[in-house]
Amino acid sequence: MANLDDPYQTLGVARSATPDDIRRAYRKLAKQHHPDLNPGNLKSEEAFKKVSAANELLSDPDKRARFDRGEIDAGGQEQAQGPSYRNYADNAAGRRYSRGGPEATEWSAEDLEGMFGSMFGTGRPRGDGRIRGQDEHYSLTTDFLDAINGAVRRLTLPDGRTLDVKIPVGTTERQVLRLRGQGGAGQGGGPSGDALITVQVNPHTHFERSGNDIRLILPITISEAVLGGPVQVPTPQGPVKMQIPPHSDSGTELRLRGRGVAAHGGHAAGNLYAKLSVVIGTPDAALEEFLTQWKPQVPANPRKSMEERQ
């Protein structure tokens, strides 16, 4: 889990590098390896993760000083990445940013002729009267977990036919599934059209999806936060055990690698990010008693940053 590579080496800077040197080195490597500019290139993606983590550590003077003093190692700097453009742009959602606009068909007769020669001019009747049936559009609402894990759902069409629709693992909101030959009937012996099914995904009460990662707020008790300990975490594939490190707090984000959306269609499995949320519940007499007596060695003021801004 921890990335223990030396962040100075990752960025290619000396240990004495100035913040400007670090910024320049990061900028250069980000241009080279940004995964949205290198889609499908796993090497770039891995390199970019390392570079971001190194930058995260070295661009923060406080963290950098602690690293230099050996108080922290290079692990754990990997930030929860926001949504990745490539994950959306690679599928039907990306048509929104096609140059011809979302309605533009992506294959023109010229394209196909360029690729296969004029014998494949499609969409036009071939002169023998055979006309392909129309594509028909439907929508299907699915549960969050079925979209993540994959499922088969039965869809009843307006004409009474039923279709078993396979929802693939990792299906995203508004993804269009194509069922070949399930659309309108062809004419003159032409093939049937396709059924195009737009999937809508219902939200989940605990999980939130971001690309192939899953996020979740994980309530923990005050003693689990202070002392650490094993807890059960729900994941889309069922509960797993996770160790809460001692001295955790509300807002701490823990990662369960590979417990997000399962690997599918060339995408690696996503991660699950559990953000801790300390829940006190109804305090009992012993806790009240303890807190009344308790004099912290270093009094904490969690609202300090708010006061400074005013």
Partner: peptide, 20 residues
Amino acid sequence: FQEIDVARVKLIRELRQDMD
């Protein structure tokens, strides 16, 4: 804003800030 728009805003910000 759909998810792809949110991701695109993030990409544009990274192009502007991280890559200057």
